[in-house]
Design a protein around this nucleic acid. Structure first.
Length: 465
RNA sequence: GGUCCCUUCGUCUAUCGGUUAGGACACAUGGUUUUCAUCCAUGAAAGAGGGGUUCGAUUCCCCUAGGGACCGCCA
């Protein structure tokens, strides 16, 4: 049996959405699971809409989530000569024919079909007509002579057997009248030339498969296996498209979702392995199989993405986490200053406890990252005269400390609670507000110890109404 | 409209004829905690409907309903 080869074949006409990324992920995982190859084919034959920036965006998106393709990208537009060659070969072998219908004629047929509420299907007018009768002023398209009799059963790995009457597949165009090849021809030729063993793609291509298979058969090529993955739906149950918000990778990376978390989420969306939820990259390669893919479309669930991200934030190595945070800030916020990096890194232990995203960590760490505190005006109001006294008393004690530590601070705080006849909140809250600008935040000891001594002193003596 | 596909808690899913229908997220309640969180415990929550087949159906078959995809000289 030949070595497994799969591919992902997007068209660079827009940013890749996460449905596409999941399909790519499945395809990639399967090839890696089988110790095979995974290729990337850029289907850029629509010259009008294809853009290089989208091509780059697609490659970067895949890289971001950890998918790397083998070999160079296969650029479909560079293979047009091959596609045309096959089209002519099909013509010669009488598997295709020239169709001289004008576009007006076709439009008219479609319109009438719509009026009569019957499905439009090309009427095969030129299938058996002699070219001698061809109008001179019309450049023909080449249509594939699709089977009319019988039916075909597609053995799909995910969807099972799908039977379709051959005559529902029309004589589709394989070469336009400007001589350029169309999708179904290109896809079939490329998949064959790239020696694909498994075509794993969205199930919006299911019907196309019946066209592509006929090209394979006409050319006497060995058929690959097919696995049509159900589409991802939006929360209202519609096919996810590039126009939907929160559909592209950027939408997730910019709020601080980490690649590993999104990868894990996407893996479990429409695929499962027993009750297992968390998969390392290695586990996902080792355990992935096509049989585990469900047949029904699944909906995107943001709260689950967040909780998956939260899980990774809390469980990965802190050096790794800091690396990700640093990258994130550089890309989407502002770069953390060199002298603050160490402090953030050390404080990750508690900063990450309140975070679902890297953005949350960034926000929680504002009081460390910035020298100036951004005071929440509502919270500041909580500081009354009594609180002010607590703050200044603490400040006096704090100044005497050489190297602050929890052991040293604890008795001081406890003493203040006693002398001011209050509780922990009475001391902790004013201090927290002074030091971070907010009444919410990490434990007071964590805050104090995460700041330079002079920073603490400065902030405690600052005048805020 | 035609063709094809799908249907288990709100969501992602487990179950491959016999289960108190399991897990995860979200949700609710309680506990820990010096705030917000975290963490822990508990709880509520599902087989679309109707027929068969069978000793027994969530599981197999049929019908209905609902949802989706496709129906381009786009990919």
């Amino acid at each position: 049996m030949s070595k497994v080869a799969t591919r992902f074949a997007p068209s660079p006409t827009g940013p890749l959405h996460i449905g596409g990324i999941r399909t790519a992920l499945f395809s990639w995982l399967y090839s890696k699971n089988q110790k095979g190859k995974f290729y990337l084919r850029i289907e850029d034959t629509d010259k009008e809409r294809s853009k290089d920036e989208y091509k780059d965006q697609i490659i970067n998106s895949l890289k971001w989530i950890g998918i790397e393709h083998d070999g160079n990208e296969y650029i479909q537009s560079k293979k047009i000569d091959d596609h045309v060659k096959i089209a002519n070969e099909l013509l010669k072998k009488n598997y295709a024919y020239k169709c001289y219908c004008s576009s007006e004629e076709i439009e008219d047929q479609k319109k009438r079909a719509k009026q009569k509420k019957i499905p439009y299907i090309y009427n095969r007018k030129w299938r058996d007509l002699s070219e001698v009768d061809a109008p001179k002023d019309i450049k023909p398209v080449i249509r594939f002579k699709s089977k009319i009799k019988g039916s075909y059963i597609l053995k799909d790995i995910v969807q099972g057997d799908i039977e379709i009457e051959n005559d529902t597949i029309e004589d589709f165009v394989i070469l336009r009248n400007d001589g350029t090849p169309t999708y179904n021809l290109c896809a079939a030729v490329d998949d064959h030339q790239m020696s694909m063993t498994h075509i794993i793609r969205g199930d919006d291509h299911k019907i196309n498969t019946f066209k592509q298979i006929q090209i394979y058969e006409a050319m006497k090529w060995e058929l690959p296996s097919f696995a049509h993955v159900p589409l991802i739906h939006t929360i209202d149950g519609k096919k996810l498209s590039k126009r939907d918000k929160a559909s592209t990778l950027d939408d997730y990376s910019k709020i601080g979702i980490m690649p590993m978390a999104l990868r894990n989420y996407l893996l479990r969306l429409g695929w499962s392995y027993k009750d297992k939820e968390i998969f390392t990259l290695e586990e996902s390669i080792n355990l992935f199989n096509l049989e585990g893919i469900g047949k029904s479309p699944s909906k995107l669930d943001m709260s689950r993405i967040l909780s998956m991200n939260e899980h990774y934030i809390k469980n990965i190595d802190e050096n790794d986490l800091f690396g990700q945070l640093n990258e994130y800030c550089k890309l989407f916020k502002k770069e953390i200053k060199q002298d603050k990096k160490d402090k953030i890194k050390k404080s990750l232990t508690f900063l990450k406890n309140k975070a679902k995203t890297l953005e949350d960590i960034f926000n929680n760490g504002q009081y460390i990252i910035n020298d100036e505190v951004n005071y929440n005006q509502e919270d500041v109001k909580l500081i009354d005269d009594k609180a002010r006294k607590v703050i200044s008393d603490f400040s006096t004690q704090y100044e005497k400390i050489d190297t602050p530590s929890r052991e040293i601070l604890e008795p001081i705080i406890n003493e203040l609670i006693k002398s001011h006849a209050t509780n922990f909140k009475g001391v902790g809250q004013p201090l927290r507000i002074m030091l971070t600008g907010s009444k919410f935040g990490p434990g007071i000891y964590d805050i104090i110890l995460s700041l330079e001594k002079e920073q603490v002193q400065k902030r405690l003596t600052i005048k805020i109404t």
